[in-house]
Amino acid sequence: MLKTFIDGIVKNNPVLVLAIGLCPTLAVSTSAFNALGMGAAVIFVLTFSNLIVSSFRKVIPDNLRIPIFIIVISTFVTIVDYVMKAYLPGLSKNLGVFVPLIVVNCIILGRAEGFAYKNSVGKAVLDGLGSGIGFTLAIFIMGTIREILGQGTWMSIPGGFEGFKVLGQGFLNYPVLFMILPPGGFLVIAFLMGGIRYFEARRSA
């Protein structure tokens, strides 16, 4: 049981190892707070869609399963979208179209089809939590790197907390703006993935 949970975070990390769910990872990781918000939304949708799919796995007809999964997932995505719009309007504005687009995130449909449809409820929920936390961890690491280098702050919240000034005042005046622009996102994930592969290769050699 515990292995299911840990595997989703480390060994089968959806973003950094399996390279799925890339769109939100790159688009939303301009700051650590945005990344956490997106991660929380994905954990919620993933856990609950796994729970529902796994509970009803005996009654879902095999050839209709994909449309049924999509309806289940889009229900939870709509809930997240509306709750976020009501209580965290700033975050909702930053994440923009990527909140409703959680529907087509390959991680969620992939876990529903590949795991929850074949396993017991408890396992499916743990798998959902594990993969969701794995996604959040990856996107949070990217958000942290990009925000610190690109803006000089960490965990700043739009319209609230102005963030920890990690690199000092001088850096705040002249940050590496490149990092929070689109090319920086591609560069950061390239080196994160490359780094993971490098250490994996050295460990197994």
Partner: peptide
């Protein structure tokens, strides 16, 4: 290309340079 960067990582770096050009 260095072994660790083969495949996807180098593709991401390419994309980064392309994005820079499109900027």
């Amino acid at each position: 290309v260095p072994d660790a960067m083969k495949g996807l990582p180098i593709a991401f770096i390419t994309a980064s340079l392309m994005a820079l050009a499109f900027l």
